[in-house]
């Protein structure tokens, strides 16, 4: 029986908000995998996002990319951001997260998948967030394709608008609102 190889090796990271520690010390690489079977072995054995405590994150990034803006693969990039209302934690959150992971490991964006860095899910009392990070916020065609395909994969209604924010803008935003570089 041969395992099904993935195009990329991925790392799954966990972040728990412990204010007594430095930010980076709260970030842990759980494990890496590069086959479909190993993905499921991992996914089936970790808590679903809806069970995590507030302030926690999961991140899944291509091997060699760390889940932070500062990483050389992320610093010129941005993210398609899905913000969820509080009541969606029970109903949609885990489903959206799995669909996001399947999009990534299955190279669901075709040739545009080369711009994919990874995905982050933030569990927050004020509303959970899921994002797909890409490497170059200037690649308009690639970013727009990924946004449209991602909306489709999540089954989001056409009229629901999602925004893409460059990390550079998010990092330097003055108020709590970050301007969108693209919307679909």
């Amino acid at each position: 029986y041969m395992k099904h190889p993935l195009q990329n090796r991925w790392g799954l990271w966990f972040y728990k908000n412990d204010k007594s520690k430095m930010w980076q010390d709260n970030l842990r690489l759980i494990t890496k995998f590069d086959t479909v079977e190993d993905f499921w072995a991992l996914y089936n054995n970790i808590q679903p996002p809806s069970k995590l405590s507030s302030g926690c994150d999961y991140s899944m990034f291509k091997d060699g990319i760390e889940p932070m803006w500062e990483d050389r693969s992320n610093k010129c990039g941005g993210r398609w951001l899905i913000t969820l209302a509080k009541q969606h934690r029970r109903t949609e959150l885990d489903h959206f997260w799995l669909e996001t992971l399947l999009c990534l490991i299955g190279e669901g964006f075709g040739s545009f998948s080369r711009d994919i860095c990874g995905s982050v899910i933030n569990i927050r009392a004020k509303g959970d967030k899921i994002a797909i990070w890409t490497s170059n916020a200037e690649n308009c065609e690639t970013v727009t394709y990924i946004g449209k395909k991602y909306k489709e994969s999540l089954g989001l209604p056409q009229k629901l608008v999602i925004g893409y924010q460059a990390h550079a803008d998010t990092a330097t935003k003055s108020n709590s609102i970050t301007k969108n570089k693209f919307v679909v």
């Binding site: 099904h4 993935l6 479909v36 993905f39 499921w40 669909e99 190279e107 669901g108 075709g110």
Partner: peptide, 18 residues
């Protein structure tokens, strides 16, 4: 070059196969 692409149905089927 080639790219290994799996659709979600295939990935979900792999989850249930032993």
């Amino acid at each position: 070059g080639t790219r290994i692409i799996y659709d979600r149905k295939f990935l979900l089927d792999c989850r249930s196969s032993p």
